[in-house]
Amino acid sequence: MFSNFDYDVIWRSLPYLFQQGMVFTLTLTAIATVFGLILGTLIAMMRLSSSAVLSGFAVSYVNLMRSLPLVLVIFLFYFLMPYVGQWIIRADQPVQVGAYASTIVTFTLFEAAYFSEIMRAGIQSVPRGQVMAGYAIGLNYREVMRHVVLPQAFRNMLPVIFTQTIVLFQDTSLVYVLSITDFLGAASKVAQRDGRLTEMYLFAALVYFVICFTASFFVKRLQKRISIIR
């Protein structure tokens, strides 16, 4: 079954797979996590605010993003973003947004919806009494959020945030549909050029598995540690 396996093709393409493909995959994951988390936190605060307009907007944004398949959003944003840019800065022609910038914005906006649900749960996990205590000692909303609520919310949700990041890491493989060279894109380009699908796709699966399995192992340990301290 594996007798005519060509391990050499994997060996030869390793630098390309990792230096280009995996570097892009990891960069996209990291940037989308950081910005998605920031945006998600803002959306969560809007959702929990007393303003009906703000929370209404947050609810519809989250529901919209969570109802659409990521592949569709990747296509749509890739084509739409230059026009949106044009509209925002009132330029006379569409603003150029490259493939990489476009995927980063897409993943940030998409994942923000998921991170906002996590952060909402995190904010709600902080007892109301602490918020009131904050106001009682004369802090304003920003200070209460900044010094009391968000650090705890973030800390309580850390394992869930990491788990979502692992999901995000896997989701980045969908940029394949745009022919962008992420890890899977690199593997499939080599696979198609050399007619070595079996080797390349199994190798890609193995690499993703090792990374995600190791990462989720550490998340589980983190979860235990955090739950003991609380």
């Binding site: 896997q170 989701d171 493989s173 969908l174 394949y176 899977l184 499939s188 699908l197 796709y201 199994l202 890609a204 699966a205 993703y208 598995f209 995600c212 399995f213 989720s216």
Partner: peptide, 11 residues
């Protein structure tokens, strides 16, 4: 759970 859906589809 630890292999992306797209890779599983290709396999």
């Amino acid at each position: 759970r630890n292999i992306p859906l797209l890779v599983q589809l290709f396999i």
